[in-house]
């Protein structure tokens, strides 16, 4: 299938892009096109205007300070995989990036596009939910910052208003003692996840989170009580966590998500 006819614009700045979004109700943002491309071809989206943000310099900017790193929305999965941008987790982001689709998709697909699309099965959504990530947003009338859990409202649903762009993510810095585990269960290489488990643990900042991703909605985040042992979860523990997260799925899906959580914890706490 082929897309409907659309106009194409390449604004020079975020401000200009936001103005265009506000002015044209039928407009849609195009970043890496790895999700939007197929959607256009299938005519599931029939925008009047595509606003290509891939070459707006400020969206590709990255920065880093003592508390964390800021990664621009159009930074690609490949750039993160290659360590070309700051990684406040000491390598965890690169590991997750490497598991997204395959290299051709990673070369174009962007971290901002992934979050803005908010597919529950997307790797960044689950990963960044475990890290206490914030999302920077710019609209025609101003900017705001949201916690990732508030930004994502549900399956392919975010808090972005019609005229707003996601401009960057802010990821806090973890200590060198921090441990991370990410386990994705999928049918084949390059396929979207059936279940994702993420564990992030930092004894210095007392962060200990478990995330069940690729569920039927937004990632389920569980903040584990301080004092919970930093060791691989048992099957019973993983199942109990899912219950606490109010995970709803059938027996098979529950078993899969429990396994993903458990394996993420094994990766995190591997000796």
């Amino acid at each position: 299938m082929k897309p409907v006819a659309f106009a194409y614009a390449r604004p020079a700045s975020v401000g200009e892009a936001a103005q265009m979004l506000a002015a044209e109700p039928g407009a849609k943002v195009l970043a890496g096109g790895q999700t939007l491309g197929p959607i256009l071809n299938l005519r599931l989206a029939q925008p009047a205007l595509l606003i290509d943000i891939a070459r707006i310099p400020e969206l590709a900017a990255v920065g880093e300070d003592a508390d964390g790193a800021t990664i621009g929305a159009t930074v690609t999965h490949a750039a993160i995989e290659d360590g070309r941008v700051p990684d406040p987790t000491g390598g965890f982001l690169a590991r997750v990036a490497r598991g997204i689709a395959y290299r051709a998709v990673r070369t174009r697909g962007t971290i901002g596009g992934s979050l803005a699309h908010a597919d529950p099965a997307a790797d960044w959504l689950s990963c960044l939910s475990a890290l206490g990530t914030q999302v920077y947003i710019t609209g025609a009338t101003g900017t705001r910052t949201l916690e990732l859990d508030t930004f994502v409202r549900g399956t392919m649903e975010t808090a972005l208003a019609k005229d707003e762009l996601l401009t960057a993510v802010r990821i806090p810095r973890f200590s060198p003692r921090a441990r991370f585990g990410f386990h994705k269960i999928c049918r084949k290489a390059g396929e979207f996840a059936e279940a994702i488990g993420v564990v992030a643990y930092d004894p210095e900042s007392a962060i200990y989170r478990a995330v069940a991703g690729a569920t039927n909605g937004r990632p389920l985040v569980l903040a584990l009580r301080a004092g919970v042992a930093a060791k691989p979860f048992t099957v019973a523990e993983a199942e109990h966590m899912l219950q606490s997260m109010r995970y709803a799925g059938d027996a098979y899906e529950r078993q899969l998500h429990a396994a993903a959580l458990r394996r993420a914890s094994e990766l995190a706490f591997a000796p």
């Binding site: 004092g227 919970v228 523990e237």
Partner: peptide, 12 residues
């Protein structure tokens, strides 16, 4: 039930 400060683990 989920409380503001997170959740316990059985036996943890």
């Amino acid at each position: 039930p989920p409380g503001p400060d997170g959740h316990g683990l059985p036996g943890a």
